[in-house]
Every structure is written in structure tokens, then in C-alpha cells.
Design a binder for these strands. Sequence first.
DNA 1: GGGAAACGGAGGCGCAACCTCCGCTCTGCT
DNA 2: AGCAGAGCGGAGGTTGCGCCTCCGTTTCCC
Lengths: 231, 231
Amino acid sequence: MAQPDESPQPHPQPHPQPRPLRRDAERNRQRILEAAAEVFTTRGLEASLDDVARQAGVGVGTVYRRFPDKEALIEALFEERIGAMVQVAEEALAEPDAWTGLVTLLERAATHMAGDRGLRQTTMYATYGQDKVQRARDRMQPVVTAMIDRAQREGVLRDDIQPTDVPFIELMLSAAAEYAAHVRPGIWRRYLALIIDGLRPSRDGITPLPEPALVPEEMMEVMRRVPRDRR
Amino acid sequence: MAQPDESPQPHPQPHPQPRPLRRDAERNRQRILEAAAEVFTTRGLEASLDDVARQAGVGVGTVYRRFPDKEALIEALFEERIGAMVQVAEEALAEPDAWTGLVTLLERAATHMAGDRGLRQTTMYATYGQDKVQRARDRMQPVVTAMIDRAQREGVLRDDIQPTDVPFIELMLSAAAEYAAHVRPGIWRRYLALIIDGLRPSRDGITPLPEPALVPEEMMEVMRRVPRDRR
DNA sequence: GGGAAACGGAGGCGCAACCTCCGCTCTGCT
DNA sequence: AGCAGAGCGGAGGTTGCGCCTCCGTTTCCC
């Protein structure tokens, strides 16, 4: 019996293995990704693909030949970055000291978010790439919960903090970062320090948190809403 | 000599005293203002005047007959509310206890801002009504500065807080409020409480604020920038 | 009753984003 | 070297939206 099928495509696959691009096409694809990174990071997802094309030095047609639509390009770009956020959380959990781990998590997550308007939009609002973002959140949540539990068990974090407080803190810091981006992009560190001091466990003069945290289902509901633009 | 001029308009005035409107016109003017309040408060300044007209139950033409353009309507609406913010600050300064006064200021300002998307946009970004907003800020600033100085002199507020921190705190709380508006509009109180605990004067374990506050000139510069829409 | 004031909303204008199309260019295989 | 066809650019079609105007009709008030 001769091997019946040694051709490069034994079975029709779900992703039919795209044949390699011609060299110029591949070069342009890279340029487009770099340009999109630049544009979406600094100006947010509401930037147009015409902007991306201009930044890349190619025609719009070339962008659309490579990425069927805007969403595909955005997913290609941010998948990796969202993964990086999850990794940050996992590394923070590996930190032996609970308090240090938590602070590291908040600080490093904010570092990613503060400089990247597109990432803020993809993670905080379910506008593009819902599936992948959702999967990332599903991996994130237990890690954050574990971090908080551990810190509270060790008595270094106030008792009334909940996992859903973390995205809110990141949101607030992002808002500050975005607001001052063109004057003092690092200002969020100031407010992170303030918040961190507020996270310390109870002592004299502490204000009990007057409003319960969102439960995870509420958090889902919040994120489902679109902000004001796109889709 | 008969009095040369007893007519209702002795001199051409800067505001030439608009003659009273016909009854139906006045009624519609009120409806428009109410509708605009509703629409701009909940959906923000990017709502269209067509939306306002629909909400008011009048034609767009009627809106434009009464208010020369969108900016005029917005100014008419928010002048009073911006004034209310200044008044909040002044009342807080009148409070005998420095710490209570500061907390009251933060809490009441956030109460105004959190429920009012249009007010957030007018105060935080110089998109509409720049003059009036600027004047309000000029009145606000010394009051806030006085509040902070007093609290620090009395030793109830950490030393490294600056006047420009107040708008940033309000911005962050507003971001949280807007984000969760449709699920838990009051969630900002939770994060205000957290921040307030972080404002307490130094003690063990406090993180020195790692980044200096913006100086007032930087704050001006920040507010001059437009966010992403309108103008 | 009549003249002025006010009304409504269709539609002009301008803009901006997404995406398509087609005549030309470039690559890489033979 | 030549050629088939993959790839390219970017003008422009399409859509959608917001601001604002215009004018035939309605309402008010004297």
C-alpha cells in the first residue's frame, strides 16, 4: 500500500492552513500590525482602519485583504496582551508574601492598562473579541480571588475587599491615566499608592465600606454594556 | 424738557432684554430644558439635539429657535449646576471640623458628578462653555486649597495631598460610577470610602506617594484637551 | 379676524468610517 | 527572461449621523 495521502493537506481542516504569503505581503502584514499597535494603543479602538493604513504606509485595500474586518485585526493584536494580563496575575500569586503579591498585581496590571487605551477598551467593555476576552476573564477571576483570600487570611488586607474591586480599581486608575496622558502619563501611580493605603486592614478611624462590592454576575452585566461608540 | 427716554430700554444693553415669549413658546422652552436635562444627564453631551427635541415632544426647529446652537443650550443647562459645585465647596469650608469638611466636599461633589454624565463632561473637559466653567474653577480652586491646608495644619490629612488631587479623585469616582451606572449607580461610594481611608495622615505602613501631584498649570493643560468626541 | 409669533419636521450639508473594486505592480516559478 | 497571478493602492460607493435651515401651517393674542 502506498501512502494514500502525503500532500500537505491530509484532511480538510477547520483552519485550512493558509499558504505562506508572498514576501512583500508578509512584510506588509507586519507593518500593519505594528501600525495598528501604535494607533490603537494611543488613540483607542475608535481609530479608523484608514488611520492604521496611513500609519503603516499601505493602502486601505491591503489592510482589508489581510484582515477581513476591524474586529479581526483587533483580536489579532490584543489576544497576546490580554494573555499577558492573566500572566501578571499568576505571577503575583506565586509571590510568597501575600501583601507584596497583591500590590504587585495592582501595580503591574495598571502598568499595562495605563499606557494602552485599546487594551483598556478591550478588557473593560465587550465591544470586540468577546470570546477571547471572556476566556481571559475566566482564567483571571480565580487567581484574583485566591490572592485576596490569602491576603485576608494573613490579615494584611482589609476584610471587606472583594474580587470585583480589582477591576474597579484598575478602571479608576486607567481613567486618571487617560485623563492626564498627554501631561503626566504616570500620575496613576500616585493614586494607586493612595488606594493601596486604603486597602490596609482595619484600624482606628477606618470607614467601613458603605456599599457592597458587585457580585461577579453584576460584573458580567456591567462589562456587557457598550460604552458609547463602536458596535 | 420731556424726559427724552423712558422707554423700557434706556440704553442699548449688552443683553437687550428679550421681550417675553408667547405662552406656548415659553411652555416649549421649559419642555426643552427639561428634556435636555434628562438626555444630557443620562446619555452625555454627545446626545443630539434631535434626541432632545424628540424627548421634549417638539420639533428640532423649535429647539433651534430658542437656543442658537447646541452650546447655548448646554450652557443654559449646566451653568446652575456648576455653580452648585462651587457652593458645595464653600459650604464644606464653613464646616467647623476640617476632616468632616473635606469628606463632605468629596462626597457631595461626587454625588453631583456621579449621577450626571453631562456635568462630568462639562467640568472635566473644556468642550462647551469654556468661559463659565473656567470662572467656576477659578472660584473653586482657592476654596479647595484652603480646605486642604486647614486639614493638614490640624494634622488630620496626610501631608502630601495637594489641591489638584481633588479633581482626580472626582474623576476616578466618576469613572466607576459611569461604568456601573446601569447596574449599581452608587458603587462610587465604596471607592470613595477606600480613598478616604488612604487620605488619613501618615502612620505605619503608609506608602509615600510616589509621583508628585499635578501643579495647577498642568491641570489647566489637562482640562484643555478634548476627550474623543464633539468639537 | 388678522397679523405676528411660533411650530414641525423634511431635508440640505458636511463629515467620517467601513469596505469594494479595478487597473497597475511586483514576485517567484519555470 | 517571461509570465501567471498574487498583491497593491487609493478613489470612491455606501451608509449613517449630527447640526442646522427653511417654509408651509398652526397658534396666540390683541
